[in-house]
Design a protein around this nucleic acid. Structure first.
Length: 492
RNA sequence: CGGGAUGUGGCGCAGUUGGCUAGCGCACUACGUUCGGGACGUAGGGGUCGUGCGUUCGAGUCGCAUCAUCCCGACCA
């Protein structure tokens, strides 16, 4: 059942796919480019959802749900937006099947052709803005802040479990505001929510910044992003928050009467994170033994493996374990006693490591005699025998420590793989080794494009709040003047 | 859509220059011994070799066609 995974150092992408499948998170579905998220993987996603949902509500957003199908005409109102998504849309053209007159199963009934095709949403801006039009009349109606948890479909050419699938789960927030400033503040607030979530729950350091105009969301005036570094040095965009200006308001004619009674277009934002975060979690922390889950997101924080030969030993160990379990559960932790009697302890150890459970507790006859337990931590693989007395408090502290240790390890990795680079020759070489390069950029799309063509590297973001980056210099490629450094990397 | 590769029990694979009852590992079933880092023994069950056509006395093996999947590229908040 739980066989070895490919070594991370040998083939990073193979290691990743192996791990996702073998740790029981997800698997390829028979449907092209789609995946099945398995219960263990979904449990992690549910934890993410719960935490994010609470944060959204703190900011005043409310959950809602909008249709899966978007009439083609809605979709095409915002020119840039349609250009950005046109190439990857699934389109519904018919609504009925019939028995094949020639006897080959079922075929599409040609008579059921839709007058107007329906697009399966690749994102919901258009359907939501056509709805908001009816909701917004007066300044009193603003702001409107809705979030929806949904699935979207993007017909990607090439897919990868969690990182890029044809269908994926996400949350998308869509807000409408009376002023530009308020909308921009909202966009910033939400990217900060994402950054906080990444750091404090996923234990994953991220850089917050603006996308270059080239890399912006289709139809946005500004795109804020959180960029994380995976263990192969590649960048992963983990969440985005867009300031949409009045583009959608104008396309969908969403106006409100301000306090002076004048009609004005509203200002918009949208923001989202997806199941891609699951991939980020795997790639940010996993090792050759499997997943390493931060306690804050682990569906099982503590697993207990009883070791016994006789029924007496078995029940004695279980009794002790249940005491510890109750104590931990009372403190809000999720605990599992792995009491499967068909598997040997060594097998269970390996299996729970593969699944990334942060803390493992083992107890056997020896411990019963000495009043001890064996504690193993997943992040460092350290094993310790400690007194049974007070073990619940020990574990609680340990969970906090593991959360911090995982974050610091990832932070340390990232920091040692970020460097300034001022020479084009050096850039070409270093960028291929992975990691982020902080370079001067002249701000033009041409330069950005050239660099991408020659090295595959893109501008991941123009960092906000980074003192290191604010300095004068010259563009690494064109030699033109620049007043700040931006983050370059090869990305997923 | 260009370049490369692969389709053989649930999974991973072997199968020589065509040759007779199609193998191996894992998983599965039963029994026994085990159980503090992925147990072992014995006995079992399961595949017509992606699909179609052809060559041949004989095809998993050769040829053609077709379908599917994977990798690289193009594409990609």
């Amino acid at each position: 059942m739980a066989d070895q995974i490919t070594k991370r150092s040998e083939n990073y992408s193979q290691w990743y796919s192996d791990l996702v499948v073998k740790a029981d998170l997800a698997e390829q579905s028979p449907v092209r480019g789609c995946m099945v998220i398995k219960p263990y993987g979904y449990a992690i996603w549910e934890k993410m959802q719960k935490i994010l949902d609470a944060k959204f509500k703190e900011t005043g957003a409310q959950n809602a749900y909008f249709p899966l199908f978007i009439p083609k005409s809605f979709f095409s109102r915002e020119a840039e937006h349609v250009a950005g998504f046109a190439k990857e849309c699934a389109v519904v053209t018919h609504h009925r099947l019939m028995n094949d007159p020639e006897g080959n199963g079922v075929v599409v009934d040609p008579a059921s052709k839709l007058e107007e095709e329906l697009i399966v949403r690749p994102t919901s801006e258009t359907i939501i803005w056509s709805t908001y039009k009816n909701w917004i009349k007066s300044w009193r109606d603003l702001p409107i802040m809705c979030n929806q948890w949904a699935n979207v479909v993007r017909w990607e050419m090439r897919t990868r479990l969690f990182l890029r699938t044809a269908e994926f789960l996400w949350q998308e927030g869509h807000t409408a505001h009376a002023t530009s400033q308020e909308a921009q503040e909202e966009a910033k607030r939400m990217v900060d929510v994402y950054a906080d979530f990444a750091r404090n729950y996923m234990a994953m350091p991220v850089i917050v910044g603006h996308k270059s105009p080239n890399e912006r969301f289709a139809g946005a005036l500004d795109t804020l992003t959180i960029e994380a570094m995976m263990q192969d040095g590649k960048a992963l965009q983990a969440g985005t928050s867009h300031f949409l200006g009045q583009n959608f308001a104008k396309s969908f004619d969403v106006q409100f009467a301000d306090k002076e009674g004048k009609l004005q277009y509203v200002w918009a934002t949208s923001w989202g994170v997806s199941t891609r975060l699951m991939g980020a979690l795997v790639m940010a922390h996993g090792d050759d033994n499997g997943l390493v889950l931060p306690p804050a997101l682990a569906p099982i924080e503590v697993v207990m493996v009883p070791i016994y030969r006789t029924d007496e030993e078995h029940s004695a160990v279980l009794a002790k374990m249940n005491e510890v379990k109750s104590a931990l559960e009372a403190a809000g932790h999720s605990v599992k006693i792995d009491d499967r009697d068909t598997l040997r302890p060594g097998f269970k150890f390996a299996e729970w490591e593969l699944k990334g459970v942060p803390v493992r507790l083992a107890m056997g006859a020896r411990d019963l005699q000495n009043g001890t337990v064996e504690i193993h931590r997943r992040d460092t693989l350290e094993k310790k025998t400690i007194p049974l007395e007070g073990v619940d408090r020990y574990i609680e502290d340990l969970l906090v420590d593991i959360q911090n240790t995982i974050y610091n390890k990832a932070l340390d990795y990232r920091n040692t793989h970020i460097q300034k680079c001022d020479s084009w020759e050096e850039f070409k070489e270093k960028i291929q080794q992975g990691g982020f390069l902080l370079c001067h950029w002249d701000g033009t799309a041409e330069t950005e494009q050239k660099i991408k063509e020659e090295t595959k590297a893109t501008i991941r973001c123009i960092p906000v709040d980074s003192v290191v980056c604010k300095e004068e210099g010259v563009d690494i490629y064109s030699g033109k003047p620049s007043h700040e450094r931006v983050v370059f990397a090869i990305s997923y």
